[in-house]
Design a protein around this nucleic acid. Structure first.
Lengths: 249, 249
DNA sequence: CATAATGTCGCAAAATGTTGCAAAAAGACG
DNA sequence: CGTCTTTTTGCAACATTTTGCGACATTATG
């Protein structure tokens, strides 16, 4: 990878995540951390990034604009996104729901990954379609203003006609008794059919959603193949879920 | 391989991959790296590539280009967008194509306007869905990376099933003899059915697209109800079009 | 304050660039 | 056709840039 190209990549990552870690960049681009540091130094010198111990921050951090467009719990969601990405193999067809965790996943997809992503989430589609090697298929229908995903009979019918390799759901609530639940009826309907249309189902949830529930039922825990949180799979808060046979990551 | 031929090949590779390595090119074309370097130097001097240590990058890497998100001919497009908006009445159902002119339109929609917009253009959908009073319906299908709109049989079938009040098309080329034409086959198919599915058709074009044509035929001028350019409707460059019965705005 | 993670510095190896030059190729012209 | 000029190309010597490594300093964190 050329130096200029690398720096452009770093800037791109900075725009997406507002922060980069030297360690992770060095892994991703496959150069030594020294090189990354020198790049960050140059970017900092030319005023395009703010260098800090361990990596760099986007310029938006320098300003006192704490009007943060930061998604709540962003770090946790990045951890979850990385774990989820490890399940996606070359040339898979992946169906994804909406939500900020999914957006984080979309932003974090490695450049080299070749796959097909199907979604009705506008922000996710945007990220997918910026990716050089990913084919994107859009589920059409009316956009729900709250969730910024397409909902309705057409969307449901379309999803029903699919049978994809992997379904990745950002979920709102789960507990042992009720399984996976949600607060939005339309979204719940969609998630139900998404689960039916997939070989394997991955549920993404930050730990604070564990042991909570919402009024609308989506599915029991046994319909989920993988549960991903930011916690270590051996964490005691997940002990009950381990017994249900869901694979924790 | 001749010099000219070689440079054309290099540019082609640049467009394809956004980067070239001197080493690879020298292998591929079977000339010394010196020669490649001289070629890259010339391409850089004439502003067709960005030379960096180890090879060259496509112009899209240039900071300048990225920094100003200036769309080409932005001012003209804003004028066109304003004129087009004047045709949209309360509670209309509007079908729009893709393209930068349409994006400008989407950005410029007045806050109070209540209407339903149907589109397969990702950037346009994004703008529409930010709007407080607009219902958005997404045409689903596979995303074409070039044009960032959904294309394919599903999209066409969906559009065929509609009958909307207004269709607003950003167009690539029009002249008296060929009518409206385009360079992308898939996009042209979509535009054809969009025209059929609408009561009234509006064509948007900056003046430099007037009296030009592209290989793929979309429709004759008589299928268009309104033609909007940044020019005054009485401008002499539009005189011929006036006679065809198209309403100029 | 101890420990691990990160950063800095100088250095050397490898890759890439530059320059001047001469041979080959192509073109110009009587 | 032969001679001259110009352009193009590759080579060799030398300069520069880039990169990773190791020794040592600094910072973060519990």
């Amino acid at each position: 990878m050329l130096k200029r190209e690398r720096q452009a990549y770093i800037l791109h990552q900075l725009n997406l995540h507002n922060k980069v870690l030297s360690s992770r960049l060095s892994e991703a681009i496959n150069v030594s951390e020294d090189t990354i540091r020198r790049d960050l130094q140059e970017l900092a010198d030319s005023g395009r990034a703010i260098k800090v111990h361990g990596g760099a921050l986007s310029l938006s951090f320098s300003e006192f604009n704490i009007h943060n467009n930061n998604v709540y719990g962003k770090d946790e969601k990045q951890i979850i996104a990385r774990k989820a990405i490890s399940l996606i193999k070359e040339n898979m067809v992946v169906l994804t729901s909406g939500g900020t965790t999914i957006n984080e996943l979309a932003r974090s997809l490695p450049r080299e990954l070749k796959a097909t992503f199907i979604s009705g989430s506008i922000p996710a589609i945007l990220e997918y379609s910026n990716h050089p090697n990913i084919d994107v298929i859009v589920i059409g229908d009316k956009i729900s203003k709250n969730s910024r995903i397409t909902i309705g009979a057409d969307a449901i019918a379309k999803i029903k006609s699919l049978k994809v390799d992997l379904c990745i759901l950002g979920i709102n609530a789960l507990d042992i008794e009720h399984g996976i639940t949600d607060s939005d009826w339309d979204v719940a309907q969609l998630k139900k059919v998404m689960i039916e249309s997939s070989q394997k189902v991955v549920a993404l949830a930050i730990s604070e959603k564990i042991d909570t529930y919402q009024p609308i039922h989506i599915c029991p825990l046994r319909n989920i193949d993988y549960l991903i949180t930011e916690l270590n799979p051996d964490d005691e808060r997940l002990a009950f879920y381990k017994k249900t046979g869901v694979q924790l990551i």
